[in-house]
Design a protein around this nucleic acid. Structure first.
Length: 420
RNA sequence: CGGGGCGUGGUGUAACGGCUAACAUACUCGGUUUGGGACCGAGCGACUCCGGGUUCGAAUCCCGGCGCCCCGACCA
């Protein structure tokens, strides 16, 4: 894409009513727009990141055996009354509204009930199990206080997968696989080294749930990490019994602030028994389906990555989810610079590389500053100086490392950088 | 939901109860410049969040509302 065509602009100053790093940088760089407290609009650059994250996670979910669907946002109160979760005393962050005929409906905060009821039509036998179903959907939660930019909003994009197994043993095998896949996802998006599997409150369902907590001061949870064992315990459940059951000791734990970027739960039979989701086992007896749920807040993950990787100059995106792979900075306005930039741009685009070409007629300094702010991983500087020696300059946003590459080698070098 | 802070051109700031609401930036036009937000000149742009009140006079003081941020509580 040519930057002169991009309708968003960067801002020199951060809006005064945003304090969090993710909101400041994402707004300044033109990735998001705040519609109201806790509600953000995704602009072209931001949407590219969100889509890349979605696609990366979709692949992982498919590899895990997941089947993608799209459930509705409007929720039928009847399903939720069956499990007791329609009540505001039980789930206090519903957005509820009324149909013209007066029936009350809710905007989805989560989807256990509707999906479990949906599967009544499809699961009868052990032969139908296990099944893993997931979706990407906006969730609505009437938070008493939205905060920290896109880390905690009232409307946000989430991936939620639900597993339906015939036994706890089968469930556990999948659950362990899901943990691996989650670790894999967080390392692919560049935060693997600071994200810990964290034991947390299992609710009414099981002893523990497992959170994936990324260390950052912007987080709202406090966790205690055993760095050797690479696991952590959420403050909420920290006590001696829990520590001994996990074979951890207090002196090895480090306290850190963290943000929950993923959460997986064993649900057991809670929903299936209440909603009647059972199957005929081999033996002929009727059993309740054993369930689990597996969430990743996509928009929160995007914000967390910003918190973790950005620097004083702006955003820094890992190649795996960057809005563009290469940012060509056309420095100088003469014909040869513009010709060379356009040629390289066209070549890269033809090879399927996502390229942003800064073809604006502005000062070089502003282009460098904007490029650092936007955070595309590879900056390609094309200037008269470089052209005269037949080279272009490639600069890594994250490290500042510069390599000079012969014009003929540009495509190969870029393709290699993208793969790395 | 308790506590605190704040609402002034698109953005960031200024203005004693008293001049035509100022400055920077962004934007438009002209010129210069082109390796780190460069420079010169000329413009456009604000019912000072909304409603009421006090006053000869309100961006400024008072009341009510709305909105935003922060701390806490909450977070299937």
């Amino acid at each position: 894409m040519k930057q002169s065509m991009l309708f968003t602009k960067t801002k020199f100053e951060a809006p005064k009513d945003e304090v969090s790093k993710n909101a400041q940088l994402l707004i300044r760089a033109g990735f998001v727009h705040k519609e109201m407290a806790g509600v953000y609009v995704y602009l072209p650059l931001g949407l590219r990141v969100l889509k890349n994250l979605t696609e990366l996670i979709r692949k992982e979910m498919n590899d895990l055996g997941g089947q993608e669907i799209l459930l509705s946002s409007l929720q039928n109160r009847v399903s939720w009354e069956k499990t007791g979760r329609w009540s505001d005393q039980v789930v206090d962050n519903w957005f509820k509204t009324k149909l013209k005929n007066g029936s009350e409906v809710g905007l989805a905060t989560t989807h256990e009930e509707p999906l479990t009821e949906l599967l009544l039509d499809h699961i009868n036998s052990y032969r139908d199990l296990p099944v893993y179903i997931y979706q990407f959907q906006n969730k609505f939660r009437n938070e008493e206080r939205a905060k920290s930019g896109i880390l905690r909003g009232r409307e946000f994009l989430m991936k939620d997968l639900y597993s339906f197994s015939e036994s706890e043993a089968e469930h556990n095998k999948f659950y362990e696989k899901a943990i691996d896949v989650y670790h894999n996802i967080f390392s692919k998006v560049g935060i693997g080294d600071r994200t810990y599997l964290t034991f947390s409150d299992g609710g009414s369902f099981s002893d523990f749930s497992h959170e994936f907590q990324m260390i950052t001061d912007a987080g709202e949870d406090t966790i205690y990490i055993d760095k050797e064992k690479k696991i952590a315990v959420n403050e909420e459940v920290l006590n001696d019994d829990v520590l001994s059951s996990l074979d951890l000791s207090r002196e090895n734990l480090v306290e850190e602030k963290a943000v929950e970027v993923g959460n997986i739960f064993t649900l057991g039979n809670k929903f299936s028994s209440t909603l009647g989701l059972s199957f005929s086992a081999k033996t002929g007896e009727k059993n309740d389906v054993f369930m689990g749920c597996y969430g990743i807040g996509i928009s929160r993950l995007m914000g967390s990555i910003v918190e973790a990787l950005s620097d004083e100059k702006g955003l820094v995106w890992p190649m795996s989810i960057a809005p563009f792979s290469v940012h060509i900075l056309q420095v100088g306005l003469n014909e040869s610079v513009s010709q060379t930039s356009t040629d390289i741009y066209n070549t890269l685009v033809q090879e399927g590389v996502d390229v942003l070409l800064d073809d604006r007629q502005i000062n070089a300094g502003e282009k460098f500053a904007d490029s650092d702010l936007i955070g595309v991983p590879v900056q390609m500087i094309i200037s008269e100086k470089n052209i005269s020696s037949g080279e272009v300059e490639l600069k890594e946003r994250a490290t500042g490392k510069v390599v000079m590459v012969d014009e003929a080698q540009v495509l190969d070098t870029v393709l290699r950088m993208i793969k790395e």
